[in-house]
């Protein structure tokens, strides 16, 4: 009875949702002189950055990105405090198995390649698709592979927290340098360079590398915490 009621409500909701969204019209240019045209114009003419999504995330909406990385940091902290236990229980792995030697050698071979791919993705964030969030996640995936292959693979929490806080502080300091040049937070103060060069876009590349380090360390810490949870 309850399921039929739910299905009825969902059918009505779906009909009106589809009707309203279909009325908008998809695939047609809707806004002329909107914020889209402003961003696309300023990206190539002022900032000399190839990837528009990067310039929106890091430059035009850079303050939101700072908030986003802070939310990620808070999530990792909350995870650690929710799963907190007495000291002598911590450290035993919940998933106890011994992986075969093929898996061990393969992941040892793949781990540097995965980290290199992640670094490539976030260094070239302003030229090609990708950036700090994607590259950081790829690096965290490499650490996950090593943690699953080796039972006693340890990640040092001091190194993680040092890299994480260093990257966060450098992000804020670069943002505050914008004030010194008479601009706003995250205003560009380095030379822009030419389009499609590695050293172009001023501070955008540096900030995305910092975001990459921060996301990589935060996600690695998250996986490490939840993997060492034992019932």
């Amino acid at each position: 009875m309850k399921k039929f009621l739910v299905l009825l409500i969902l059918a009505v909701l779906g009909y009106y949702m589809y009707d309203a969204l279909y009325g908008i019209g998809i695939g047609i240019p809707r806004f002329t002189d909107g914020v889209k045209d402003f961003y696309l114009d300023k990206t190539v003419s002022q900032l000399h950055v190839a990837n528009t999504v990067t310039s929106i995330v890091v430059n035009f909406r850079g303050f939101d990105t700072l908030g986003e990385v802070t939310v990620l940091f808070l999530a990792v902290t909350a995870l650690g405090s929710i799963l907190y236990k007495k000291r002598h229980d911590v450290g035993t792995r919940s998933i106890l198995f011994s992986s075969s030697s093929i898996v061990r050698s393969g992941s040892k071979l793949l781990f540097p390649a995965i980290v290199l791919l992640g670094a490539y993705v976030f260094i070239h964030g302003h030229l090609t698709p990708g950036g700090g969030f994607q590259g950081g996640t790829i690096i965290a995936t490499g650490f996950l592979l090593m943690l699953l292959a080796y039972e006693n693979f340890k990640v040092s929490h001091t190194v993680l927290s040092f890299v994480e806080s260093f990257a966060g502080i450098l992000f804020v300091v670069i943002g505050l340098f914008g004030f010194m040049n008479g601009g706003t937070f995250l205003q560009n103060f380095l030379p822009e360079g030419a389009l499609n060069n590695l050293f172009s876009g001023g501070v955008i590349g540096i900030i995305y590398v910092m975001v990459g380090f921060k996301v990589a360390t935060e996600l690695t810490g998250l996986i490490y915490t939840i993997l060492h949870e034992k019932d």
């Binding site: 996640t137 996950l144 019932d231």
Partner: peptide, 25 residues
């Protein structure tokens, strides 16, 4: 393509693995 890369890294790998760890626990 940016969103596709993010979804590939986070949605496929990390979300699945933390769900599996939760089920294991």
């Amino acid at each position: 393509p940016d969103v596709a890369l993010t979804e590939a890294a986070i949605g496929v790998a990390l979300t699945t693995i933390i769900f599996i760890i939760t089920i294991r626990n």
